[in-house]
Every structure is written in structure tokens, then in C-alpha cells.
Write a protein that binds this DNA or RNA. Structure first.
Lengths: 119, 119
DNA sequence: TTAAACCTTCTCACTGATGTGAAGGTCAAG
DNA sequence: CTTGACCTTCACATCAGTGAGAAGGTTTAA
């Protein structure tokens, strides 16, 4: 599918899709004429990228973790260098830290809202 | 305490503290000579600001939610306009959405790491 | 087959957010 | 009076994203 249709289906502008390609987040194949060719399963990746960006993850990290997020069983069998494993573990821990921070503050907002009278 | 000492104690550069003041995140009083005067309890706020920024929260939202994060019982009694309450509830929900997204992806990373053989 | 309408390409430039660097001036303590 | 900490201000860097123009490919319909 060409970029226009993919943009319409994913809700991500063609402009932004080209940007994501430039950032190495989403890499479509190219046709004979140089047109980008998106496959249907890239819709899932695209949604994941959007969700992670909206959650405040930088593109560099998304680029690192995307491959293992869309991993299927046959990919699981690929080897994983100790350095890559370590980096992924660190990213996982950083995400956990984010979650803890966000949860703590959300709970604080919630406690505040509960304690203030309704009107 | 002046900006130099506060920077040393908080681990946030003086330059960045001035920036946070410009962004209305942390507003120290001013002495006769125009020097910024930070109070000790601003250290907590400063840490909270850093944590939230590191977790990917934008300054505008932090500015909104900070007052209710450092709220003490006497502040709880202040009135809260329905609009403000609504905005806070929306922010809380947005934070929850972020948490869900981050947790899902962290778990995916974790599952991947568990499934790939050790070496 | 040609023409119009549309899509895709790339590139330059720009925004807004989060910072950082450095110049030039002021204040205060030794 | 020199030194160091502070003041403001202008400029710059990076990241995520957008706008617009020029050139060329694709489709449709006369």
C-alpha cells in the first residue's frame, strides 16, 4: 500500500510517516518507481510508535525497542548480544522508573481531588 | 538560600533553575538586591519537577499539577473551580493512559528478554 | 495519445519545547 | 580593588513535527 492509503488508515500524516522513516522508526520497502510500499502489519508498528511517542518516549529508544516488541516466535530464536541484552534491560528499568514516578504523581492528584469538597 | 547553593543541593544547574523560573515551574522570592532566594522546601518541588520531566511530562502540565502535589491540609480547604477540577481529572486520566502504555511495552520487552536464550 | 487531476518524491525552512553557552553588567566579601 | 557569585539577555543546540515548493510518476477520461 502506498503512503497515502497508509496515512489514511493509520491516522498518521504522510509527512510524519516520511519523518518516521528518516528517524529509522518505520522503514517501508520501495517500489520500482521509488514509491514507498507499506505492508498491512506495519499498521500495528505505526500505532505502537504513536503510543510510545505520546507516552513521552524518545524516538531513539523506540527505535531500539521496536524490534523486540513486534518479535514473533521465529525471531525469538535469533541470538542477542550481551550488550544489546543489557541495553534492553536498562531501557526496561528506565520505563519502570517512569511508571513509578507517574503512578505516584497520579495518585497524589487523585488524593488531592478526593480531599477537596465537591463545590 | 541563593541559587548557587540551591543548585548544588538539588543537583540542578543554576542555568536550568532560571529556566524553570521562566517557565513558571519554580518561583523563588527575590532579595533587596534582586538575588533569587530559594527556601529549603523548594528542594522537594525541584526534585518532583525533575522526576516528572524525566518521565516525559511537559512543563505546562507540571505547572498545572504542581500546586496540588505539594498541597498540605490547609490548602485542601481552598475552593476548586469545576473547570480546574475537570482539567485535573483529565490530566490524571492522561497520566493513567501513559502508565498503561508504558507498562504494556515494558512487559513486552521483558517477555522478549525472558524468551531469548542467555547466550 | 494527450491532458488534467492526483499522488509521490525530495529539500529547505520553520515551529515549539527543553535546555545550554557566553557576553556584559552588578553585588558583596576578602 | 580584585574575585567570585549573581544578574539579564541573546544566541544556539536538539528533538518532534509541520509547511510549501519544485519535479516527476500514475490514473482517468476525452
Amino acid at each position: 500500500m502506498k503512503i497515502g492509503e497508509f496515512a489514511a488508515r493509520s491516522g498518521i500524516s504522510a509527512r510524519l510517516l516520511r519523518y518516521y522513516e528518516e528517524q529509522q522508526l518505520l522503514l517501508p520497502r520501495r517500489g520500482e518507481n521509488g514509491y514507498r510500499q507499506y505492508s498491512a502489519d506495519m499498521l500495528r508498528s505505526a500505532a505502537q510508535i504513536r503510543a510510545l511517542l505520546d507516552a513521552g518516549m524518545p524516538t531513539t529508544i523506540i527505535r531500539d525497542i521496536l524490534p523486540c516488541l513486534s518479535a514473533t516466535e521465529d525471531i525469538y530464536l535469533q541470538k542477542l548480544s550481551p550488550e544489546t541484552r543489557l541495553r534492553l534491560e536498562q531501557e526496561r528499568d528506565r520505563i519502570s522508573a517512569r511508571i513509578v514516578c507517574l503512578a505516584r504523581n497520579r495518585d497524589a492528584i487523585d488524593a488531592y481531588l478526593s480531599s477537596v469538597p465537591l463545590t
